[in-house]
């Protein structure tokens, strides 16, 4: 059984992404199969060399390199969105086609959207 954390909120507009990643880390801590899908406004999470101050929001990009220590290795983005984004993004993601995206969603028993 696997669970997907589906991120589409902006990392700086609310605490939603922070609380989503907290949930992903707890699933990892409990050794449950967990994947992450990142789309829409949430792609800003992956932008390299971002330097938010405390008032702007938590520096969530810094968490990304630690995900593998929680056995969170399947992190999906859409190929088309990455191409359209136009700036370099964190490289620990798998960019997949729209068709593969739909298949990926169907492979998870539970999806938590943030």
């Amino acid at each position: 059984m696997s669970t997907l954390i589906y991120l589409s909120s902006s990392p700086y507009a609310s605490t939603s992404l922070k609380e989503a990643l907290d949930l992903a880390l707890v699933f990892g801590t409990f050794e449950q199969a967990i994947s992450i899908a990142i789309t829409g406004d949430a792609l800003a999470l992956l932008v390299e060399e971002q330097t938010p101050n405390k008032r702007q929001g938590k520096h969530l990009y810094k968490l990304l390199d630690g995900l593998e220590f929680y056995d969170i290795e399947n992190i999906y983005v859409k190929e088309s969105e990455v191409k359209a984004f136009g700036t370099s993004l964190w490289t620990g993601v798998q960019a997949i086609s729209q068709e593969a995206w739909i298949n990926m969603l169907e492979q998870h028993q539970h999806i938590y959207r943030f």
């Binding site: 707890v26 801590t29 539970h110």
Partner: peptide, 19 residues
């Protein structure tokens, strides 16, 4: 803690979200 949500996820047939 969020561990309780993980437990509910494992023990339930369905999780229904209200946002």
């Amino acid at each position: 803690g969020l561990g309780s949500l993980v437990s509910l996820t494992l023990e339930s047939d369905r999780i229904v979200r209200f946002k």
